[in-house]
Design a protein around this nucleic acid. Structure first.
Lengths: 141, 141
DNA sequence: ACAAACTGAAACCATATTGATTACAGATAA
DNA sequence: TTATCTGTAATCAATATGGTTTCAGTTTGT
């Protein structure tokens, strides 16, 4: 899958920790990617209302919502994340054989269902949960 | 994800329907791919004991097990399918920031869990189920 | 014994996907 | 009004994925 999801979650967690307005450049350096990609991802989170943005001098991104209310399914929705999919299709709709003509449809249904299951799981994890986990992990070491 | 899984499931369903020994060439034409790829995938299913193979003249692949006992998790195991993953990692383990150093680990755990959830679901679907579904779908049209 | 027809496996090529880079218009604050 | 940001698009590079070709090894029929 595309790693936009990871960029978004990382960005949200970082914004939540810093509490201030952060530029795409600073975010990119923390995420270890380039500012343009950060802006592309964060723009979608903005459209979904998950963050505030400010253009111009001293602008950037700002996390305003309650981190325990922002779950990862909301992030998936904002980015239209697809966890499980395959562009390649087996068989061919026009073949007379029941298997050859029907398998790709069956596989698509399977992928769709797996996707929905993944999204449901993501609904149970919040930005706060991840923040807590990071803190716990640091203490362990 | 890679579409080896689709090739394998399609292959098993086709073998189950035909009941006879089928060459990689015939399988490939039904799956709509090339014989080499079919052989690569089917060899793994053979190693997992899901099918029998026969080399030499009149050789090929043969489905012997009870189709209602062969579930898709067994196929996943045979092929070492990974449904959800991302090769790209955000942040960097060596950075002092808790978020930057810890996020990739957290995301990996999330992907691993999603994978396990997908595999569990796959355990509930058998080759027989798919065969039945194909028959039903054909009747509907 | 030998030829034909198959699998198993690897090397290599073509294409698609993914992330990086660059550039620039528009917004905003000092 | 200038400097510094975001938003967006175009292009480039690296990686992943599937296709093709090839050949050694196996098995069967004659």
């Amino acid at each position: 899958m595309t790693s936009e999801f990871a960029v978004a979650v990382h960005g949200l967690v970082y914004l939540n920790q810093r509490k201030t307005t952060i530029s795409s450049e600073e975010l990119a350096s923390n995420v270890c990617t380039n500012p343009a990609r950060v802006r592309k991802v964060m723009a979608k989170l903005k459209k979904a209302g998950l963050i505030d943005t400010k253009e111009g001098l001293e602008g950037g991104y700002h996390f305003v919502q309650d981190p325990s209310k922002v779950n990862l399914k909301l992030v998936c929705n904002a980015l239209e994340v697809t966890f499980v999919s395959s562009s390649w299709k087996s068989g061919d709709q026009n073949m007379p054989c029941m298997v050859a003509s029907g398998m790709s449809g069956v596989m698509d249904e399977i992928y769709d269902e797996l996707n929905e299951i993944c999204r449901s799981r993501m609904e149970q994890i919040t930005i706060q949960d991840i923040q807590d986990k990071l803190i716990r992990n640091r203490l362990i070491q």
